[in-house]
Nucleic acid binder design. Structure first.
Lengths: 167, 167
DNA sequence: TTGGAATGTCAACAACACTGACATAAACTG
DNA sequence: CAGTTTATGTCAGTGTTGTTGACATTCCAA
């Protein structure tokens, strides 16, 4: 692959910003920003000897109370064994409760306990604080672009999951 | 913490977009997008039984040929033991070479071999292809905003490292 | 009633991070 | 020159998070 410009000869504006160098800057920006994105919750979680997997589970259970294990599985994109290990510790520690489904008794519906909701709020506050500062720095138009690019970067099924959460 | 609007009563536009709900959407967008961001290289790496850590090392060695171990360490934000494990396999597999420094013989300067550069190109092409598509979808102004928000989201030292790479 | 789906569990394993301890060589400092 | 610091590498141990594979249970649905 040759260096320099990408694409197959678009006219106009594309040539001004779709260079490999510009793309690489975007890649590195994602890398460094994601570190910042997770840094604050990570610090809180480390003190409780939890990890990011616990955070993700707590986040999406809070977001969709009563969600099933299977649903959570498809959102998180991990194996049931992996998720189950995390859920077991959260249930054991009294942060999450699992209720047998009424319609379908095979399903387990997941809810945060008060204690779980408290941890979720703590983690969420920390992460939102950084997000809020970044949004404020960058301005409203930048935020629109930020979301637009992120959404375009997702896999199709992730975009669907993301959209579903916005209902 | 109460739900709804955040901040301490900014006037004007802030109130229109800095709600907890908007922030949460940004958080989830980051989560899902990062999965897409790493998905393509991950698939290639898995076939070679390498991981993301190898990718990151290869990326930044390619970016700054001759960089020292210590420099790489501070960019990647991992321990030397962790990095060393990865470098050892890459050197052993003939993708990276380590040269003793001329001025300071304690330092090891890292370079990609032809084989290493080839893998870097393969990984980079895959990741850039997705990035390019996302940029194209979202448009040039969105890309500006995207970068602006990501940069604002970084820790100060990461922002410095990021800026340094752009020289 | 049988097949399959949803869930959970156990075991083994790998990648990747961590800490702590220690070794070596080179460079710096007083 | 002696002592300290720096850069690097290595060994051992540990933890989180992910993976496969195998198997049991429950229960809906054809």
């Amino acid at each position: 692959m040759p260096e320099g410009r990408t694409g197959q000869g678009y006219g106009g504006e594309s040539l001004l910003f779709l260079t490999d160098e510009q793309l690489r800057q975007g890649i590195e920006a994602m890398f460094f920003a994601y570190r910042g994105f997770t840094a604050d919750p990570d610090r809180i979680l480390a003190e409780l000897s939890y990890g990011r997997a616990h955070h993700r589970a707590i986040h999406f259970i809070n977001r969709s109370p009563g969600t099933t294990v299977n649903n959570l599985l498809s959102i998180l994109g991990v194996t049931k064994q992996s998720l189950n290990r995390v859920l077991r510790t959260l249930i054991g520690d009294g942060l999450v409760i699992s209720k047998v489904g009424e319609l379908d008794k095979r399903e387990r519906h997941l809810y945060l306990t008060d204690q779980g909701a408290a941890l979720e709020a703590t983690l969420s506050d920390a992460q939102r604080a950084r997000m809020r500062a970044a949004y404020k720095d960058a301005g409203p138009e930048a935020v629109q672009g930020f979301k637009k690019v992120l959404e375009a970067m997702m896999d199709a099924d992730m975009r669907r999951a993301y959209a579903k959460l916005r209902d």
